[in-house]
Amino acid sequence: MANKILAVLEQRDGLLKRSAFETVSVANKLASELNLEAEAVVVGNEISNINDVGNYGISKVAHLKNAELVNYSSSGYRDAIVNYANEVDADYIMLANTSLGKDLAPRLAVKLGAGCLMDCVKLDTSSGDLTATRPVYAGKALVDVKFNSGKRVITIRPNVFKAQPSDNSSVDITVKEVSSPNLKTRVVEFKKSEGKLDVAEADIIVSGGRGMKGPENFYLIEELADSLGAAVGASRAVVDAGWRPHGEQVGQTGKTVSPSLYVACGISGAIQHLAGMSSSKYIVAINKDKDAPIFNIADYGIAGDVFDILPALTEEIKKVKQG
């Protein structure tokens, strides 16, 4: 029997997250390259879109179910997944490097006696074994890493690997009731943040820095973000000044993001800011100082005044979106 790779799928409010489909796709790819069998597992209560995983070519999904596991419980999720991984004798466990994945992966690793590699952006099997690449020093360098252990836990950076739809849509979903979950550590409440979209999950981000001059001008950033369906981000300078909430901070001590498009407005491009966003696919910079370091990593730039450019940009985007 082939060795197994178990993709751990993340759900919130009973909905599988986008990263779940990425995780399944990467697990499938690794399975085919290393001759493994891929399976998926998800912990929660009702999961309304669980059938959608079938569209990503996985044939077996275990739903570890209990009404008390509707919210994340690190102890409860850990025990449920460890038991299941032992039952099917999985060698590889894969998760997305989200808040939940980061919290859970190392715990699974200790319980399973596995090595653990976090936040991988590339998985290479050309040598016959797995070599993973992960960013270090906030993306200023990368390391290629291998496992010395037989059992292996891997987390993959969200938004880097694409979810691959596949024709094979028959999926066997087994519901397994988790009896008396371990709720020693558990989420008792979730407070949704005011902002509509979170930078950590957005495909497009419009960020503002000190060049916006004051919190009252961030409507310009918000309007551009709205026109693009984007999340609003911020530099540390404006978060520390209290212009924007901490959850929006991008960078070394904020969030690391890799959206398809990052628009930096009135941001100088300090090394700690770049640390959080330099792996974005496309970067646009708007800054009146043509020598600002942000232009060194931008794909497209306008060396001008945000108060002149942002309203025009929002108008133009609206125009092309309509036409």
Binding site: A114, G115, T131, L142, V143, D144, K146, N148, G301
Partner: peptide, 20 residues
């Protein structure tokens, strides 16, 4: 349980275009 094989720098990005 894991081992670093090598460290390398990210491919340097071509400096983009300033459009105006």
């Amino acid at each position: 349980l894991t081992e670093v094989l090598r460290m390398h720098l990210p491919p340097s990005k071509q400096t983009g275009r300033i459009l105006g």
